[in-house]
Design a binder for these strands. Sequence first.
RNA 1: UCCUCAGUAGCUCAAUGGUAGAGCAAUCGGCUGUUAACCGAUAGGCUGUAGGUUCGAAUCCUACCUGGGGAGCCA
Length: 464
Amino acid sequence: MEKAMVRQLVQDNDRYNEKQIVVNGWIRSNRDQKSFGFISLNDGTHFDSIQVVYEKEFLSNFDEVASLGAGAAVTVRGIFVQTPQARQPFEIKAAEIILEGDSPKDYPIQPKRHTREFLRELAHLRPRTNLFSAVFRVRSLLTFAIHKFFQERGFIYLHSPIITANDAEGAGELFRVTTLDPKNPPIAEDGQVDYSADFFGKKTNLTVSGQLEAEVFALAFRNVYTFGPTFRAENSNTARHAAEFWMIEPEVAFADLQDNMRLAEEMMKFMISYILENAAEEMEFFNKFVDKGLKERLQNIVNAEFERITYTRAIEILKESKQKFEYPVEWGKDLQTEHERYLTEKAFNKPVFVTDYPKEIKAFYMRVNDDKKTAAAMDLLVPGVGEIIGGSQREERAEVLEKRMEEFNIEKEALWWYLDLRKYGGAKHAGFGLGFERAVMYITGVNNIRDVIPFPRTVNTCEF
RNA sequence: UCCUCAGUAGCUCAAUGGUAGAGCAAUCGGCUGUUAACCGAUAGGCUGUAGGUUCGAAUCCUACCUGGGGAGCCA
């Protein structure tokens, strides 16, 4: 007798036809009648559940089985049969059903629609629902797709540090990492906490970006990427911010902003294609219940050219739009969410790269353009999610970089190694950061970041 | 952090100043192919918390708590 997973039964159902098999799983629903009943059994290996038919005639514990509710774990032995005339493609005619673990009647997941807010409070049970089963399978596949994309192109995967002393990046509020006693920290002569007595002998925090370290590796391996957790202690309360999230940060030596955008576009298209191909059931589900038109939209994106406009052109488009914006449109000011949404959703209705922002509103490491007014930055905006990628060509000229650091009040001493990259064999290079969760949101149509992270961490929330 | 909306049965929602209700889930019963099964019955409530207004508050007012949406910050 063969133990089978539903995934195998789906992929290879001819081989199993009329064979006796054993499956394990959890009951999604149980519909019993006088002398027979049906169980929808999900074993976690496949999005769809499998139907188990049981009859009083063949089951000694029929009454027990008939009384089982949603959530119970069972082992089923029986014959696998194809049922092409029925609504389900195949089913198992049970010869034996063994209860592995009962699920009492207060099991909160019912065979009905639940709100995402309710399920968020049940992060330990929500993976057993259709929606989250689909989301987290896609999340896993997308992780693989990203590695596949970069590995096939010879990129080196670099584990940038999670604990860092680097607080000069200006990418947000930091989570302090310390072993000092918060009630009784050592005090230095100046009356401040003496971090030289801390574990690392200096102030340390969780990383907000692996970019600076990625630059180090890019100037040794040429093509590299990081893919790991990132932490921001911002008091952000939105559907697209979390305190702990994952980021992909490719960095390429001898590349300019154009190369950077080409890579970003290629990567996005690869990710989307991979999921459309390898998560057909899940994408069908999202298309039907989460975001009608999702599949068509994604398919169009794979085939379309991403729009590329400069910041200056974006300002012109916004001004010409005659649209009423809450925030004024003016060259020199950063684009607001409403502006970005207009550009990607109304003006072009597809992903849009916006490049060459005024250098004052962008980070110190972004390369200053020849006009001396703008920096070689690029943001990728996508409909529904907004900014999904932020990147730039890096400033490789030591003297320009140092001047920029002075303007931004950044301690040069702490980043001596970063400056060394320009001193020894400096080369032009470029890279970007992709918010992994935002990519999952974009591809699944799920519009809250808390629903694409297994156990989301946000302000005031760290249950589970 | 700011703006805004909402907290009523396990879940999703009604009840707009005058006796708190439905569907689903649960429990019991019926049903020989169901598939968000169906049909009948039963049970289920200090209306987020604390004050206040009123003869009377789920409903009006104040504060707090929790959650949603939007904004800022960003990925």
